[in-house]
Design a protein around this nucleic acid. Structure first.
Length: 229
DNA sequence: TCATTAAGTATGC
DNA sequence: GCATACTTAATGA
């Protein structure tokens, strides 16, 4: 394993208060791995032996319902901790993490978690902050699912992905990772057919432009209006 | 308003 | 050329 460069972690929220030597310590305990698109980093219910940080790429976090179908709970973007079961006092992962695009992640054994919390200033507060934000976001989309019409839910899901991973292209803002209509239906509790119809209609209205697995939002404002309508 | 069924086209390895 | 992604229409809860 090549030595990891310190610049990988400097500036990231959980480590922003640390000096060079401390970041070096942390990196020396880390393992770096690459994941192909579609690969699982860990699976729901499995032994949570490591916690992770995404360096590059995007992840889908999936939970399966008692009914057996899978819903996409949230996405992880670069710089974020994930699989932090120890912060939840759990010894199994509460969800499955799949690489939505080719991704690179660092990981540490869970036994160093308490050590990190104790020794590195800011690590605890930042970790629990992202945890809280995530729970809030999940709860928000959950009530949205229960109360809002399908069109609004899909508009909101697109906007969330744009906010999290949008990058400018010549036509508008492109979602930075591959998304299928099935994926969007898994985020919004509808069918891929309905998502397909909505995207087709929005394309006709000049709001989005999509090819297979790629979506560009050409009129974000119109989408915001739809999400609030 | 939306899911389901069904039957098609398009796309990329 | 096959599997996967996507589209569209029809039907009915």
């Amino acid at each position: 394993m090549p030595k990891l460069d310190e610049s990988l972690l400097t500036g990231l929220p959980p480590f922003s208060l640390l000096d060079r030597a401390q970041i070096r310590e942390i990196l020396d305990q880390a393992v770096s791995r690459r994941y192909d698109e579609g690969t699982a980093i860990f699976r729901e219910g499995h032994d949570a032996d490591r916690f992770h940080l995404l360096l590059d790429g995007y992840l889908r976090v999936i939970r399966s319902t008692p009914g057996g179908d899978q819903i996409i709970v949230l996405h992880i973007s670069p710089g974020q901790l994930f699989g932090i079961a120890p912060a939840l006092q759990r010894d199994t992962y509460p969800a499955t993490a799949i690489a939505a695009a080719e991704s690179i992640a660092l990981s540490w054994p869970v036994r160093v978690w308490d050590d990190f919390i104790a020794r590195y200033p800011g690590f605890a507060t930042e970790s629990y902050k992202t945890l809280g934000q995530r729970l809030g976001q999940i709860q928000e989309t959950l009530t949205e699912m229960a109360t809002q019409a399908v069109e609004k839910r899909v508009a909101c899901a697109l906007l969330r992905m744009v906010h999290q991973s949008g990058r400018k292209s010549d036509k508008g803002i492109e979602i930075a990772f591959p998304v299928t209509r099935q994926n969007i239906s898994d985020m919004t509790g509808t069918t891929l057919h309905t998502v397909s119809r909505l995207l087709s209609a929005w394309q006709k209205d000049g709001i989005v432009e999509s090819t297979r697995k790629r979506i560009v939002v050409t009129n974000p404002h119109a989408l915001v209006v739809l999400s609030e309508a």
